[in-house]
Amino acid sequence: MISNPLNEVKISPSSKTMVSAACSHLIHGIRELNLFSNNPFWTSTLTHTEQIHSTRLFLILTSISLLSVIGYVSLTVHSYEVTRNKFSISDFERLQARYPTTFKSTCTKVSIPYNKFLNVSVRFHQVCSSPFIGRKWISSLYLFNATSYNILDFRTFGFSHYRSLRLLCLLTRQAINDNYHAFNSTNLVALLTFSRAQFNNLAGVLMSNFQKNLLANEKRTAKVTSLMIAQNRLLSALRTNYYTHSKPGSQSYKTYNAHYLERNGIDGSFCDCRSRNNQCTYPAGGFYNWTLPELGKPAKNNPPPQFQKKKKFIQSFIVKR
């Protein structure tokens, strides 16, 4: 290094040569960097140039991996646990909305009956609380000679129909009470607290299952009753869809299925209950002038049925038999 009168520092040619030589040596060392062993025992099948290229690729991939790990560690969110023994519903919903994945709230009671958080109220049809299913009204419809009327006459089946309606209402009340008791005896088991949306979904599923179980039990009861009647061959003395004809003093019996005229149909057309799965319908009324029907033939409706009470006509209604 040489000093001049102007106090300027200049690098001598020998120093420049040393720096240049060091840089050249460093660059050459980087270019010729080879991590493969020179031991003859570990001699690689790669050429010297291929070993240098493999070393460069290894160092580049290693650097990228280290940078990725360092970046991931630096960007990772460190979480810590905070426990609160008591909080309000508003605090619960606020914390759950703020920390949807990490917030957890355990229940103080793991098991709780359904009736503690759900109130099931049942509303029956008005007819089940009306006088039409009362004993007084049903008894007033009883006629000892009911089978002597036309099959379409309301007096033939009014007593039995209202008794069946009363029985249906009683069975429905009993079925609902049984399901209500079973529902209240069942407990919900949960370790973690539900959110408002989860609770609403759970309540909807529970009520849907309650209704489905109720209908399934009702259908099962009706099916068992129908099978008992069919298998025991219980026949009604009333003019129902099936009736048995016999001659006094003989041992021969013949069963006929009922036929009804088609509603608003052409003359002579009729509905066979057996082929229509007992779904034939026809207006019922009061027949005061009628002739005995022929077996296997539809009942006649001439003259038309009329109900009369206090000089006012009551409209006929449809009765499924």
Rank of each mutant, 00 (worst) to 15 (best):
N4L: 11
P5V: 09
S14E: 04
H25Q: 09
L26K: 08
L26G: 02
H28D: 03
H28S: 08
G29E: 03
R31G: 06
F41W: 10
T43H: 05
T43M: 05
L46D: 03
T47N: 12
T49L: 08
Q51G: 00
Q51M: 04
Q51C: 06
I52R: 01
T55D: 06
L57F: 05
L61W: 06
T62G: 12
S65T: 05
L66R: 03
S68T: 06
I70Q: 04
Y72C: 01
V77I: 10
Y80S: 09
V82H: 11
E93G: 11
A97P: 14
F103H: 13
K104I: 12
K104Y: 14
T106F: 12
C107D: 03
K109V: 14
K109E: 15
S111T: 15
S111N: 15
Y114P: 04
N119P: 09
N119I: 12
N119S: 15
S121Q: 15
V127N: 05
P131F: 06
F132G: 02
F132V: 05
S139C: 09
S139D: 15
S140Y: 12
T147W: 01
T156K: 01
L165H: 02
R166Y: 04
L167F: 05
C169K: 03
A175M: 04
I176E: 01
Y180W: 10
Y180I: 10
A190I: 00
N200P: 01
A203S: 08
A203D: 06
F210L: 02
K212L: 00
K212V: 02
K212Q: 04
K212G: 00
A216K: 01
E218K: 01
K219P: 01
R220G: 02
T221V: 03
T221Y: 04
V224K: 05
I229M: 05
Q231D: 08
L234Y: 12
A237G: 07
T240K: 06
Y243I: 02
G249C: 07
A258P: 02
A258Y: 03
Y260R: 13
E262K: 12
R263Q: 12
I266N: 11
N277H: 09
Y282V: 06
T291Y: 09
T291F: 05
L292R: 11
G296S: 14
P298L: 15
K300C: 12
Q306I: 15
F307N: 10
K312R: 14
Q315G: 13
S316T: 15
I318S: 11
K320V: 13
